[in-house]
Design a protein around this nucleic acid. Structure first.
Lengths: 303, 303
DNA sequence: TTCCCTTACGATCGGCGTAAATATT
DNA sequence: AATATTTACGCCGATCGTAAGGGAA
């Protein structure tokens, strides 16, 4: 068993065909056929069934595909760490960001990593909490910025600070010049919110339920950009972290009001995949990411 | 980076010399020199310092040696598991046993594994609790039988049952024909015990301390065979699990008395290394081991 | 018939082993 | 001077790519 054979196996398994894998790997099909044959001989187990229309994994093949994934990651990370040993952090780092966080820090993080960690290949993915947590558990992400609470994540986390949520509406509409707005009053406005189980929505629903207020939304949208656009149009009021709409506030297109009775906020945390210590490169990127999040959210230090 | 290169690296690092590693690997020195050179080139890091008297690891080399160990284990286990997929469990299984347990079950376990799991290469190591726990944590052992309590081991465990300790002496000496003996009376006899921090000794010391009895030992010996021999000579009384001296009891050379006020016992547990699920072969051996321990100790089922 | 995997075979590349050179204590 | 690593070089084996063969839908 060879790392090259394993890589070939994975490509074939993912492509479902020697022909397509040979395109991706830039190796002739017969060579791949031979590698798979040798691998199956060594393991004394059929990894694929050939059905004249491609290659499909046997149960044993499924097992190998699963287990080899972690192995290949470990190898890559070890190689990167050794290369980082003398000189600059080197390697591949995959960061997960929530859309609102991404909007605030992705540009600055990208710029700083490019300048300060030139040997690091950075990948940033933007998605929702549930997905990010899954990816962390699967080891696809090195680090992610999410919203708490951190319990039940079953992985190492660090709190960065608490961020308050504000009601957001087009300037001159709905909110008037109010600096504060009670939750009960907010819930009477026409609302555009994310759908159930998204971070912000859950906070609002929980607070409303505790206070026995009903929540009636005008429309739901699972993208904070859509929500911002809807608010800009003056169609509805939405709820967001204030820093996510800083630009629109400065441009004068949106106004905000702090929500009170109760005050709504959420905890910003960093989370790491639990499998082994982070790579040198991932640690370096994490430092930058932490600094940028703290500064973008106006947090002081550790939360 | 290649698994073969990694294996070569590890051999050189452990031998401290290309020449000696070439003996062990049955490969000419220049070939090894070349492999190391290529590996260092790929990682862009010196792994060894050459000082005319051999090869010594650099700090980067130390890191690679450490991290590659887990990797190679993972590879081997994956290969074994795939080979076990169709047909009989296959591969290498390392079992750790305490001396007393080893005396009772190692023969039966070896026989059954040989017959029932012919494709498994079994290795059994006998040592004391502290060592076994270390080896489990380092991943050197697949499974071990130890004594509880299982707390603070920080690894998966299963309780097999509680085993009572008995006072052991040569027939006709010290114990007379007593079936039971109070702890206070036991402590007045000339005692041969393991030294502090060994499992049985700790139980005795703890019980004595709780009852405010002083513990005075005639001699200490960190081997249960020595203790048995000392007891057979009629020189002292010792404390052991009854099943460990079953043979001598049947031969009539030793007699035992159950210890009461308080009754002393210890929990027999199995423990696994926490890193990843056990291999197919390890699971199969574990089943046999569990059955043999339960039967040797006269336990009924799960403890 | 079409698509895809397998077999066959010549060519190339990489790695091993022997032998000589070099460096360090 | 002795010991151990590195360099040089010829040889063999492994793997690749091209081309032809074989099954299944």
């Amino acid at each position: 068993m060879d790392l090259r054979e394993l890589q070939t196996f994975r490509a074939v398994a993912e492509m479902g065909s020697l022909t397509r894998a040979s395109d991706r790997l830039h190796i002739a099909q017969p060579a791949l056929s031979r590698q798979i044959r040798l691998l199956e001989a060594e393991l004394r187990t059929a990894l694929f069934t050939r059905d004249g229309r491609g290659m499909r994994l046997t149960p044993a093949g499924e097992v190998l595909l699963e287990r080899s994934a972690g192995l290949m990651r470990d190898v890559d990370r070890m190689r990167d760490d050794l290369r980082s040993f003398l000189g600059a952090p080197t390697g591949y780092v995959h960061v997960g960001l929530l859309p609102t966080v991404s909007a605030m820090v992705s540009g600055a993080v990208a710029r700083r990593v490019l300048h300060e960690l030139p040997a690091v290949t950075l990948r940033m993915s933007e998605s929702y909490s549930g997905h990010l947590v899954d990816w962390l558990h699967r080891g696809d992400l090195d680090v992610a910025v999410l919203y708490g609470p951190s319990e039940a994540l079953h992985m190492p986390t660090q709190s960065l600070g608490h961020e308050s949520l504000v009601a957001v509406a087009a300037s001159g509409e709905h909110l008037g010049n109010l600096a504060e707005m009670e939750l009960s009053r907010l819930l009477a406005e026409p609302l555009a919110l994310p759908s159930a189980n998204h971070g912000i929505r859950r906070i609002i629903d929980d607070a409303a339920e505790r206070a026995k207020y009903p929540v009636r939304v005008l429309m739901e949208a699972d993208s904070f950009r859509i929500l911002v656009n809807v608010a800009v149009q003056g169609l509805a009021v939405t709820v967001l972290p204030k820093s996510a709409v800083r630009r629109e506030i400065e441009a004068g297109t949106l106004t905000t009001a702090r929500i009170v009775s109760p005050a709504l906020d959420r905890e910003v945390i960093m989370a790491w995949a639990g499998n082994g210590p982070p790579s040198v490169a991932a640690s370096a990127v994490t430092s930058i990411l932490r600094e940028e999040v703290l500064s973008a959210f106006g947090f002081s230090g550790a939360g």
